[in-house]
């Protein structure tokens, strides 16, 4: 009997004709090609184009500059990766300090508020100059003296203030009932944060944190102003030697190769997050 039960069959997969499936794609491809083709045509037919090409898009120069620029770029990415991890942890500590209540924790809270207000209000470039030139000049024994180290510290200090605020917004977005439930179960303030609030907060703010990570990816280039031989610095050295700007283009391309996938990944995470929220409210 059960084999004959009248359950309607699931809807058959709609079969699209060739036209339905590929035509829209072909049309958009064609229109994009036409528009960009026209722009390229306009640019390259300009009177100045040969000079621009020689100065900026000189393949020989790009190839010549590439090894050094690329080595510099690895420095950028190393600083970025290390700073990212440190910022993610330190900013969370700051956000937690800031969220604490009770007189015992008042010093931590005040420290976090001052820290965030101060470091968020100072331009990153200024921080990099202050730390990158200033601290090594003090020649304090036992501390590293390289611009690379102190420049990295400056980036971490500045960005952690932003990231702390991002975390804080995520913690505040966690519903009050969660705190009440955790407390009522006997969890201490720390345990409530650790097991109930922070995991939800991190999930809430992941897209926003990734956006900060993309910004940081570019901003580590600020270290070039204190003499760190990163991609930008190496490109500048090449430019100063050859009076050709193609090395800067090489550096730009390298940055794009890192930032564009990162931005796409951020979009993807944000979309997943959006879907999850939608599902929760249904």
């Amino acid at each position: 009997m059960s084999t004959e039960s009248r359950v309607p069959a699931p809807p058959a997969h709609q079969t699209l004709t060739f036209r339905e499936r590929y035509l829209p794609f072909l049309i958009s491809f064609a229109s994009v090609a036409v528009v960009f083709g026209l722009v390229a045509r306009l640019v390259t037919s300009a009177e100045q184009w040969p000079r621009i090409k020689l100065q900026f898009f000189n393949l020989d120069a790009i190839i010549a500059a590439f090894p050094n620029v690329f080595r510099g770029f690895l420095t950028n990415m190393t600083v970025w990766a290390i700073a990212l991890v440190v910022i993610a942890c330190w900013a969370l500590v700051l956000a937690i300090f800031r969220s604490l209540s009770g007189p015992v924790f008042a010093p931590l809270k005040v420290f976090a508020i001052l820290y965030i207000d101060l470091l968020r209000g100072i331009p990153s470039l200024l921080l990099v100059l202050l730390f990158g030139f200033g601290v090594p000049a003090l020649q304090i024994p036992g501390l590293p003296r390289t611009g690379l180290f102190w420049g990295g510290v400056a980036m971490i200090l500045g960005y952690s203030a932003y990231a702390a605020e991002v975390y804080r917004s995520g913690m505040e977005a966690v519903h009050d009932g969660q705190r009440a439930a955790a407390k009522a179960l006997g969890l201490s303030q720390w345990q409530t944060l650790l097991y109930a609030i922070v995991p939800q907060a991190v999930r809430n703010v992941l897209p926003a944190l990734l956006n900060l990570a993309v910004a940081l990816q570019k901003d580590v280039a600020l270290l070039s102003v204190i003499g760190v031989r990163d991609a930008v610095r190496e490109a500048q050295i090449f430019t100063a030697r050859t009076f050709n700007y193609s090395s800067l283009i090489a550096a730009a391309l390298l940055f794009l190769m890192a930032t564009i996938p990162m931005a796409r990944f951020t979009d993807y995470v944000a979309r997943k997050d959006q879907e999850r929220r939608l599902q929760r409210t249904l």
Binding site: Q178, A181, A184, L185, S188
Partner: peptide, 21 residues
Amino acid sequence: NSNELHKRVGIVFQAFNLFPH
């Protein structure tokens, strides 16, 4: 330490308040 109290008095809320993660 109010945890000592919470060990002995339990409460269930209208909104469940389960930990979603």
